[in-house]
């Protein structure tokens, strides 16, 4: 895992830079993707898994994972779900509006360490956007990895994000003809849905993997991640190869305020991407 905080020069991490909305895409009823361009200065380089603090002037600031292509930093992309006043305001933004951006912050997915082995990417609900930069990296370096699977669970078919990309990835992530690397499942479906119905964890036992040389990346509701971790451990994937992104209560993004403290870690500074052994003793504690 790479923590690039110290490696990327940045003036004042508490000072937002103005970015203009270049494009706003309504993904689902409550999810919007914003493509941002720096009003001044260089584009914001980032690593897959990192997040920024987005500031809607006069409303507030929230941490949002970057969902764009790390090889195309000139467009800073975030996919946002409407859950509170700030995200509501972000979802209302239109082309030309300006937001403040701090970052990028936090640790990154272990794309280098995972090279040469199999990779399982598990996303639940709004957990797919923080994994999309890792998928873009995989697509660009597909030959460096073995078998790749993307398991994606959503509430209903109407809640699925990036449906056209999912279809493309079915071919572009494939390691062999007919391999079906993208497995999408929903909790509930009626009518025309032509995919799977069930929980994302139920897909794990039947994946063709070399467990000892498999790395897993996951983002989703913590309960989902706990059961995903259990299934992958049952398959024999080493604990140190299991990575999850936590997004608890991040406020300052630089480890000052302590809101996101998780045991000995600050999620904003030491995470959001953690190797499972780092958080094993903490994610099931009700007190933290």
């Amino acid at each position: 895992m790479v923590n690039p905080i110290s490696s990327i020069p940045r003036p004042d991490p508490m000072l937002p830079r103005p970015f203009r909305v270049a494009r706003a895409i309504r993904e689902t009823a409550d999810v919007v993707t914003l493509e941002l361009e720096a009003q001044e200065g260089p584009p914001l380089a980032f690593l897959p898994g990192q997040f920024t603090m987005l500031y809607v002037f006069g409303v507030g600031e929230v941490p949002i994972s970057i969902s764009g292509d790390p090889h195309k930093p000139e467009r800073l992309v975030h996919t946002i779900r409407r859950v509170g006043p700030v995200t509501e305001a972000l979802c209302q933004l239109r082309k030309g509006d300006v937001v403040g951006v701090r970052g990028p912050f936090g640790s990154a997915w272990p794309m280098e360490q995972a090279r040469g082995g199999d990779l399982v990417v598990v996303a639940g609900g709004i957990g797919l956007p923080p994994l999309r930069p890792a998928i873009y990296h995989l697509l660009r370096h597909r030959r460096d990895y073995g078998r790749v699977y993307l398991l994606y669970g959503a509430r209903t078919p109407a809640d699925l994000l990036f449906p056209q990309e999912l279809q493309r990835w079915q071919y572009t992530l494939s390691h062999a003809p007919g391999a079906s690397p993208v497995r999408v499942t929903v909790d509930r479906a009626e009518g025309a849905w032509n995919g799977s119905v069930g929980l994302v964890t139920e897909l794990i036992p039947y994946l063709h993997l070399d467990p000892a040389h498999t790395t897993a990346l996951m983002v989703g509701p913590e309960v989902m991640m706990r059961f995903t971790l259990a299934e992958l451990r049952k398959r024999g994937v080493p604990e140190e190869n299991l990575y999850l992104s936590m997004e608890r209560n991040m406020k300052c993004a630089v480890g000052f305020c302590g809101h996101c403290q998780l045991g000995p870690h600050f999620v904003c500074k030491d995470g959001p991407v953690f190797a499972f052994p780092q958080v094993r003793d903490w994610i099931v504690r009700k007190e933290v």
Partner: peptide, 16 residues
């Protein structure tokens, strides 16, 4: 496994 998956789906984890 089916019971566990059913329980988790009942929790509506991906809901608002």
């Amino acid at each position: 496994g089916r019971l566990q998956a059913t329980r988790l789906r009942l929790l509506d984890l991906y809901g608002q």
